[in-house]
Design a binder for these strands. Structure first.
Lengths: 329, 329
DNA sequence: CGTTTTCAGGAAAACGTTTTCTTAATGATA
DNA sequence: TATCATTAAGAAAACGTTTTCCTGAAAACG
């Protein structure tokens, strides 16, 4: 392996001078810089980031923490969008590596996680989709050993930022459009998780709308599960005008139930996953750009790592209507 | 940061002794080991993998190379399955990190990629779904700077292994079952890519079956594109008995076309992606366990990194029939 | 009991950088 | 011309490990 030492020898300068050239220090004469760069070129020198990290104590390593079931048969495209967005942005910013980390995060393993991140010299965490009520995450973030950005959860301290859309507003908007268009008055709302930050926000949106328009909204919790939404729809849809779900996946469950029951009710979703295209029903929903959200989180993390303090970033959302696809007769 | 030095001091031993304990060397007495472990515990010492890597020249870093469009709206779940399988296995084997790397791999950027991997001290590559005819990959692997495992492409040298199912056999088997069951004689076969390894193999399987059963098979190339398959089906399906596609995604395209044309033809797919469940038609297909395939690739890479030489690993496949889902009326 | 073997444990170099401090040379100022 | 400020460049320590080599003591052997 050709090292900075070889370059120095070749260029007839000191090691420190080569390092200065590498790191674009100002106090190097043009002539010397020239010589060094020539030597680098000739020897095909590639700086060793491991040595650099050890010496400078800056690794530029980020971990993207996804809370997924290990054996997920993931029909769910959201994690992939997060990964794509985060990795591309990290590369752009010269943050060397994004570690993706799947786990069932449980309280008992937090210490293990901290040790793992520490041993890997990870400087920043991007944590996706975990509520602030999740003790494990709280502990992880509160350990103070890492800068963190939370996606879809509110920040917890000055070392922490959060990135998410305005869920309450988005839910309000899409539901309003949906309700006015379909003329519905009695709604079945299938919410996400009890105590989940995102779920609570969306619920706020619905409640606001209900107040404003004087709607009757019957609320049940679907745990973001297709099956659960299906059951709830079976049970409660009959005497309602329409169904609003806190996620597209649950909306699919609802649609399946409606078909089973052989009744028609308009359905409104949330997320705008492209999978919906294959489910084939026309539907109002909120489109989130998960890839941009993750990219924003990486950018924000890089800010935090430069010593700035935490803040809350609201990403834009879009109201869309999934198009009717002809694969469904 | 508490270092091995602190531990040594606390335990009243030399640094090298602590290192020996850490790495489970045999020549350390039980008593000393005890003392050291106690000190580690008391100080909450976590070994620094960066320093370790620098010193030992072993990073245990792997890169999972996925050739994806940067902005893919990825309905495609296969990359995610690769990632899940690879990361989990890597963690299990103590291979520190999996870098996931998205790129449009083009010949011009190969040198850049090599430099990037080198600077990151990456020791092994897992390269997914690229044909051996792809010059970029060939160059990358042939650079000899990394141990590589190719998924869905044949190995190229002694430093390289390959992992894939027996595509010819799988295509033969699923098509045979499909053809016999549906009694088809005149088949439209929509192949994958020209010169793609996987595509060619599957084509072999179809040809063998055609010979054996005396079928008439009309072959067109769909480039693994839903849209392309749809067009080809439009154009050629009318006077055929059935359609066999080299991927599920193309099968979906074919089904859409059949619906447009308002004719019925049985369709056979390949891959077994769970997305198919949402497309809703009953269909024969080959199920690949992409997660296990990636896990196998990591395991194999670890073997290569220990100095073993390259080989070809055939993973099992399964013939399945996607169940009729009631979301489709 | 003396000699050889075995082995636990320590000292120190090495890995490839960064960074601080120092030095020498140049140019500016009085 | 003498003094001071400025700056380019080098020397060397430091980062936290691993690993090789060495030492001394205990164990084994005759």
């Amino acid at each position: 392996m050709v090292s900075i030492r070889d370059v120095a020898k070749r260029a007839g300068v000191a090691i420190s001078t080569v390092s200065k050239v590498l790191n674009h220090y100002p106090n190097v004469s043009a002539k010397t810089r020239e010589k060094v760069n020539a030597a680098i070129e000739e020897l095909g020198f590639v700086p060793n980031s491991i040595a650099s990290a050890l010496s400078s104590k800056k690794t530029g390593r980020l971990a993207l923490v996804l809370d997924m079931d290990k054996h997920a048969q993931s029909v769910d495209e959201i994690p992939m969008q997060y990964i794509i967005g985060a990795i591309n942005k990290a590369k752009e910013l010269g943050l060397d590596i994004i570690t993706v980390f799947f786990t069932m995060i449980q309280e008992m393993s937090v210490d293990e996680m901290i040790r793992y991140f520490q041993s890997q010299s990870i400087e920043g965490l991007i944590i996706c989709g975990l509520s602030k009520h999740d003790k494990a995450i709280y502990k992880l973030v509160k350990s103070g050993k890492f800068k963190s950005v939370l996606i879809d959860a509110p920040g917890v301290d000055a070392n922490t930022s959060s990135v998410h859309i305005d869920n309450a507003k988005a839910q309000y908007e899409v539901a309003k459009k949906f309700v006015l268009e379909s003329g519905s008055r009695k709604i079945l709302y299938i919410a996400g998780k009890k105590n989940g930050y995102v779920s609570e926000e969306r619920l706020k949106g619905i409640r606001q709308l209900a107040d404003e328009l004087g709607l009757t909204v019957f609320i049940r919790t679907g745990n973001f599960s297709e099956l659960e939404a299906r059951k709830l729809t079976m049970q409660y849809a009959k005497n309602k005008d329409a169904i609003i779900c806190a996620s597209d996946l649950m909306a699919i469950g609802a649609m399946k139930a409606l078909i089973d029951m052989d009744i028609y009710r308009p359905v409104c979703g949330f997320d705008g996953v492209s999978l919906m295209g294959y489910a084939g029903k026309q539907m109002h929903t909120v489109k989130q750009d998960f890839s941009s959200i993750a990219a924003g989180a990486v950018e924000e993390l890089s800010r935090l790592m430069e010593g700035e303090s935490g803040r809350e970033i609201i990403m834009p959302h879009e109201l869309i209507r999934i198009k009717y696809l002809d694969v469904i007769s």
